[in-house]
Simulated assay, not measured.
Amino acid sequence: MKYFLLFFLAMYMYFVLKNFYTIWKIRKLINVLSDYLNSATLSNSCLGKCLITKENYQQCLKEVLFYYPVIAKFQTCSDFLGYGIPETENYIAAYRLYNNLMMRDNSIVHAFTESLNPIYTLKRIFHFPSSFISWMGFKPSIIFSRLFNAFSWIVTYLLGVYSQEIKYLISTLIHK
Rank of each mutant, 00 (worst) to 15 (best):
E87H: 15
E87W: 09
E87K: 14
T88N: 12
E89P: 08
N90L: 11
Y91A: 04
Y91D: 01
I92Q: 04
I92F: 04
A93T: 13
A94L: 08
A94D: 05
A94P: 07
Y95H: 15
L97A: 11
L97V: 13
N99V: 10
L101G: 03
M102Y: 05
M103N: 08
M103D: 09
M103Y: 03
M103A: 07
D105G: 05
D105M: 12
S107K: 08
I108T: 01
I108H: 00
I108W: 00
H110M: 10
H110E: 08
A111Y: 04
E114H: 00
E114K: 05
E114S: 01
E114R: 06
E114C: 02
S115E: 01
L116E: 03
L116A: 01
P118T: 02
T121S: 10
L122Q: 01
L122R: 01
K123H: 09
R124G: 01
I125Y: 05
F126K: 03
F128I: 15
F128N: 08
F128Q: 13
P129G: 07
S131I: 07
I133C: 06
S134H: 13
M136A: 14
F138N: 14
F138G: 06
K139G: 09
K139V: 12
K139P: 03
P140Y: 03
P140T: 06
P140S: 09
S141F: 04
S141Q: 06
S141K: 09
I143Q: 10
I143V: 13
F144G: 07
F144I: 15
F144E: 14
S145T: 00
S145C: 00
N149Y: 01
F151L: 15
F151M: 15
S152N: 11
S152Y: 11
S152C: 15
W153R: 07
I154A: 14
I154E: 07
V155A: 14
V155R: 09
T156D: 11
Y157Q: 09
L158V: 12
L158I: 11
G160T: 08
G160F: 12
